[in-house]
Write a protein that binds this DNA or RNA. Structure first.
Length: 198
DNA sequence: CCAGTGATTCTCT
DNA sequence: GAGAATCACTGGC
């Protein structure tokens, strides 16, 4: 289980959004397989970085491989991966993951029993994993907090999910935005049961 | 469909 | 500054 390092996140947001699909995200005792992402960059009117640096989006303009977590609609958190190289204002939103480990705790956090309804949305994923603004600006490459890895062996047993490369990627328009609506920056694993909308 | 909820940004003074 | 509008969402009709 090798942790993805800073260099993995230095590519542009659209490339990283594709490359994160099938990777495993780990935080505390929670593990999920990334099945749906969206890309945002500075020349994109739907991006928080579009209007330039501010107090809220400052970490978006910092180093690649850092978490950008923001609070929205008065009740929800969304988790993004800063990328594109230093100061580029690019990030990838994690929209959905397939629950792998810590499922019982996720159910408690979400107060929901249906496994398909635990992490199938950006704020649901944060609620299930217990991610909040505490994680804003933290490194994803130092192995101390949230991190990503290529493979995950389920307690030494054979993995219950399909191999990383065994899927097709679908690119569509993004969800929940009013600008840049035609850009095909949403990516998900074709046929996966845990995406927010198939 | 639409309300809830609060941070952020826009649009005027 | 103040008030209005907007918002990378979710859950309950």
């Amino acid at each position: 289980m090798k942790i993805l390092g800073e260099e993995f996140f230095e590519k542009d947001a659209v490339s990283l959004a594709r490359d994160l699909l099938g990777k495993y995200v780990v935080f505390g005792g929670f593990v999920g397989r990334v099945v749906e992402t969206e890309a945002y960059h500075e020349d994109d009117p739907a991006s928080h970085s579009f209007l330039g640096k501010s107090f809220r989006n400052a970490v978006m303009f910092g180093k690649s491989g850092v978490a950008y977590v923001y609070f929205i609609y008065g009740m929800h958190h969304c988790f993004n991966v800063v990328c594109g190289g230093s100061g580029r204002g690019e990030a990838v939103l994690i929209r959905a993951v397939e629950p792998i480990e810590g499922v019982d705790e996720m159910k408690k956090n979400r107060r929901v029993d249906d496994i398909k309804n635990l992490c199938n949305g950006p704020a649901k994923f944060c609620q299930a994993f217990g991610i909040s603004r505490m994680q804003n600006g933290t490194s994803l490459a130092d192995g101390k907090g949230i991190y990503f890895c290529e493979d995950f062996e389920n307690g030494g047993k054979p993995r219950t999910t399909r191999a990383n490369t065994d899927f097709e990627v679908v690119a569509t328009t993004r969800i929940g935005i009013s600008k840049g609506v035609d850009l095909p920056y949403r990516f998900y694993i074709k046929g996966n049961l845990f995406v927010s909308r198939g």
